[in-house]
């Protein structure tokens, strides 16, 4: 398609600058990169604190993943819309306000309309604000890119964060308490034969070690990540 033609096409406001297809190769990379090559946890080593805190069980990890995807998608979009208006000197404060008010809003709405979900989430919602991945992506990406791209970047990074969270939680819950998603999966016969749950898996050191093992596996498969000497 020639440039002439492109210009004639009516464009949505957020596509007007780049004139790319919604899911062009570049845009797809925004989603897929954080899954592997540029994973926020295993490559950038961001968001480790929450990765330790909420990976004891699968359920909170999944819930956290979903909420981080929602918050990052929305906050990236808002900051991207405002990117030409935000005064440079107070941009971090503005980002913080955007994230915090989104989180507070979600918290209030859940408390009124989905009280059970709210109870499940309440502690983690506060944790989202402090997640450095959120602020990191706002600062590094949304401030300099269009709305659609920022949205993809937010969702992609949140998903990349979530994947690691869920993998770590899977092993910690399985080996630590013999459950998955709260349901017993290791049969009683195993316990009768002398199998014991590993209590250490429930404590934070093992979360770090599990993340370390994941980084090891990822690097041995993905040669791009290994620094040259």
């Amino acid at each position: 398609m020639s440039k002439e033609n492109n210009r004639l096409k009516p464009s949505l406001f957020f596509l007007s600058k780049d004139r790319e297809a919604l899911f062009s190769k570049k845009n797809r990379a925004l989603l897929s990169d954080p899954m592997d090559d540029n994973n926020p946890i295993t490559v950038q080593v961001l968001g480790i604190c929450s990765a330790l805190a909420i990976t004891v069980q699968l359920k909170p990890a999944i819930v956290m993943t979903i909420s981080v995807i929602a918050v990052m998608g929305a906050s990236n979009v808002i900051v991207s819309i405002l990117r030409n208006l935000i005064p440079n000197r107070i941009r971090i404060i503005v980002q913080l306000v955007v994230v915090a008010s989104l989180v507070a809003l979600v918290d209030q709405v859940l408390k009124a309309f989905a009280y059970d979900v709210y109870k499940e989430l309440s502690i983690f919602i506060g944790l989202i604000i402090t997640n450095c991945i959120v602020m990191g992506r706002l600062e590094a990406f949304a401030l300099g890119n269009g709305v659609w791209k920022s949205f993809l970047d937010g969702v992609g990074n949140a998903a990349g964060y979530g994947v690691i969270l869920i993998i770590v939680a899977f092993f910690r819950e399985l080996l630590g308490s013999g459950n998955l998603y709260g349901y017993k999966v290791i049969p009683d016969a195993f316990y009768e034969m002398g199998y014991e749950n590993n209590g250490l898996m429930l404590l934070s050191p093992m979360a770090l070690i599990t993340v370390g093992i994941l980084i090891w596996i990822q690097r041995s498969k993905n040669r791009k990540l290994i620094e040259e000497k």
Partner: peptide, 28 residues
């Protein structure tokens, strides 16, 4: 500009949050 921006931002955010909180209070 910085003052103007932050003032507007604070007013918008505060009123949105206050409004939601008071609307949802009873249900909560």
């Amino acid at each position: 500009y910085t003052f103007l921006f932050s003032t507007i931002m604070v007013i918008v955010v505060a009123s949105t949050l206050a409004f939601t909180a008071s609307v949802l209070k009873e249900k909560q």
